[in-house]
């Protein structure tokens, strides 16, 4: 890993945020793009740690718009994570936790990108639509969805 090499000093602290299942698998497919950055992960499942070791992994409780109380706990946990990592850049592949992390990270001046799941073939997810109000860049993985929603298209995880 280039991070341990003294010749390349990390100049970017990146916080990569994803919920479980497909969101996390899609985030892992972006890993080559994190080379050379000081990468930190936040997700909902402790068993994900082994897959990105030795990068630090922080945990937050999974929540969605139907679990309001957990959403508040998620937001508070993500606030602690963001303040601890103090990322220059936040990248999320969803879902609700990614939006929350982006919203919090903007308050400390981070640049933020939300990549909507490739599962959303017809419309943006609720999280992506919320992210459009705060993120610097919101990507859809489907050109037609990007076209219709004002999101950007820059390829896909597949």
């Amino acid at each position: 890993m280039t991070l341990s090499s003294p010749s390349i000093r990390p100049r970017r602290r990146v916080l990569a945020v994803a919920s479980g299942g497909g969101h996390w698998v899609q985030l892992l497919r972006l890993r080559p793009a994190f080379d050379g950055a000081d990468i930190h992960y936040a997700t909902v499942d402790a068993t994900a740690r082994a897959m990105v070791s030795p990068a630090p992994v922080y945990l937050y409780p999974d929540a969605n718009k139907d679990t309001k109380l957990r959403l508040i706990v998620s937001a508070l946990t993500l606030a602690v994570i963001v303040l601890r990592v103090r990322p220059h850049v936040v990248i999320s592949t969803g879902a609700a936790g990614g939006y929350l992390a982006i919203r919090i990270a903007r308050l400390i001046g981070a640049r933020t990108v939300f990549i909507d799941s490739i599962a959303n073939t017809r419309q943006l997810s609720v999280s992506a639509r919320l992210a459009q109000r705060v993120a610097h860049l919101v990507l859809s993985q489907w050109p037609a969805v990007a076209e219709a929603t004002g999101a950007d298209y820059r390829g896909a995880v597949l």
Binding site: R12, L30, P32, R111, I115, R154, G155, A156, L158
Partner: peptide
């Protein structure tokens, strides 16, 4: 097991 080159480039550009 990795994303398309175009998406990786976009993410890399965004980070740096």
């Amino acid at each position: 097991g990795v994303a398309s080159a175009r998406l990786l480039d976009a993410v890399r550009d965004f980070i740096w």
